[in-house]
């Protein structure tokens, strides 16, 4: 579990990578996230050796795509999760998964500080809610996210409060659209 400060710190490190190609910032992110991505891949069925290789691919992608990270719409953990998930689908030859059309613009060069702050805090709240879930409910979510559940077994919602995060992301999308028109 991270604190609000950690979430913000990682977001700022990502921005340093994106803006200044800051390798020290990248090394700090690597130290925190690479072992977590490795655990995620192993829990998803990869052998430790394969997972080790894949983490390197994932972290190289984190560097390459750093400018796509938008702190008003995702935490660093969320953004890295999506990269790791896509790598896992390739790796385990899961069903092909087309991606939605990209927004026709990248994140704003200077993301709104307050929007980023609130989104990062809300993501922390979600982490706390996840930690408080009853064990069986959390186990079901883990099985889904570690690819150990078929889609027909996900009959109900996760029981996690996603409304506030959704509203913040929606707001950020609207701002981006206004900004572009």
């Amino acid at each position: 579990m991270t604190s609000d400060d950690d979430s913000l710190r990682y977001a700022n490190l990502m921005i340093a990578v994106a803006r200044d190609a800051d390798k020290a910032a990248f090394a700090a992110l690597f130290t925190h996230f690479a072992p977590r991505v490795k655990a995620f891949l192993i829990k998803s069925g990869a052998t430790p050796a394969v997972a080790e290789d894949c983490v390197q691919d994932v972290m190289a992608t984190v560097w390459r795509k750093a400018r796509m990270f938008d702190p008003a719409r995702a935490s660093v953990a969320t953004w890295i999760f999506t990269i790791a998930r896509n790598r896992r689908i390739d790796l385990l030859r899961r069903d092909r998964r087309p991606e939605p059309e990209d927004l026709p613009w990248g994140p704003e060069p200077e993301p709104d500080q307050l929007d980023s702050l609130v989104l990062q805090q809300e993501t922390e709240r979600l982490g706390e809610a996840l930690a408080r879930l009853p064990e069986d409910q959390r186990a079901l979510i883990e099985r889904a996210y570690f690819g150990d559940l078929s889609h027909s077994q996900i009959a109900t919602a996760t029981g996690l409060p996603l409304g506030t995060i959704k509203s913040r992301i929606r707001l950020a999308l609207e701002k981006l659209r206004q900004h572009m028109s």
């Binding site: 999760f81 979600l126 996840l130 996210y145």
Partner: peptide
Amino acid sequence: ECRARLQAQDAVGGALLEDSGAVAM
């Protein structure tokens, strides 16, 4: 609307990544 809902859902994956252990590289 569903793009925002999906990205909120991705945050669940992020929270799990953050909180489901670490294996040394």
